[in-house]
Design a protein around this nucleic acid. Sequence first.
RNA 1: CGGGGCGUAGUAUACCGGUAGUACGUCUGCUUUGGGAGCAGAUAGACCGAGUUCGAUUCUCGGCGCCCCGACCA
Length: 412
Amino acid sequence: MKQSQLFTKTRKEAPKDEVSKNAELLIRAGYVHKEMAGVYSYLPLGLRVLNKIENIIREEMNAIGGQEVSMTALQDRMLWEKTDRWDDAKVDNWFKTKLKNGNEVGLGFTHEEAITNIMTNHIASYKDLPIYAYQIQTKFRNETRAKSGIMRGREFSMKDLYSFSAMQEDLDVFYEKAKQAYKNIFERAGIGEITFVTFASGGVFSKYSHEFQTLSDAGEDTIYLSREKGVAVNKEVLNDEVLNDLGLTRDELEEVHSIETGNIFKLGTRFSAPIGLNYKDENGEQKPVIMGSYGIGPGRLMGTIVESFADEKGIVWPESVAPFKVHLIDLREKEASDTLYKKLTDAGIEVLYDDRDQSAGEKFGGSDLLGMPYRVVVSSKTLASGKFEVKARKTGEVLMLDENELLNLLNT
RNA sequence: CGGGGCGUAGUAUACCGGUAGUACGUCUGCUUUGGGAGCAGAUAGACCGAGUUCGAUUCUCGGCGCCCCGACCA
């Protein structure tokens, strides 16, 4: 894409009241627009990142048998009363509104009720199970205090998968597959090395749930981590019994701050029982379906990536989620730049081409802020040498490559 | 929801009880071109409401909004 066509602009200064690094950089770079506290619009570059993250998630969910659906934001009060989650005393972050006829409806903050209700139309026998359904959809949560930029918003995108199994053992098997799929997602999104499976409170149907916690000073959570064993325990549940369960000692644990980027949870019959989602087993006996839920927030993941890798000059995207792989900078050699732009895009490489008539410093500063993995410069200097200058955003490493070498590097 | 801070051009800020100045941005023109360039000109602003006052952007009260700490995060 030619940058002259891109309507967003980069800014040198951050809004004064924006403290969180992810929001400051994403706003300065023009990836997002803040609509109000905790509510952000995604602009062209930001949407490209979000889509890439969502596609990674989508692929991993499909790989474990997930079937994609899209449920409504508007939720029926009656359904939520069945599970005792309508009352504000039980769930305090509902957004509620009224239909013209006065009936109350809510904006979904999660979709266990909705999906369970849908499944009552499709599950009758053990032969119908298992079913894994997921969506990537907008959630609404009336947070008393939105904070940390796009990390904790009132309206945000979320991938939520729900599993429906006949037996507890089936759930246990799938749960482990989902855990692995989540690991794959974080690995592919570039934060695998700093993301740890973390034991957290489980509720009535299982002793523990598992959170995926990404190390970050900006994190709201405190966890106790054993880097050696690759496990962590959320501070909320840390006690001697838990340590004993997990075969850990306090000495080997390190207290760190982290961002909860994902959460998987065994629900058991918490929702299927009150809503009446049952199946008939081999003996014709009616039993409630065993459920699990698996959540991950693409927007929060995007913010986490910014927090994790940004440096003093701006954002640094991992290749897998960068809006473009290459930022091509033309320094007054338009013809040669145009030619290279065409060759790169023809080779299937995603290129943001800064073809604007701006000063070199402005282009470089903007490029560092935007954070594409590779910056390629075309100038009289590079043309004289017969090569192109390639700079890796992450390492700062600069290479002078001819056209073939450049295509080889960028095609891998 | 408790506590604290703050609302002045698109952004960041300054001054002031007598209707607002600067920088960046944006627009025009010329010059410039390897780290957010220069000159000239232009554009654009006091969150909303009430009160005090001859006069309020400034003082008072209320509302709305934003940020931070805490609580909360099903």
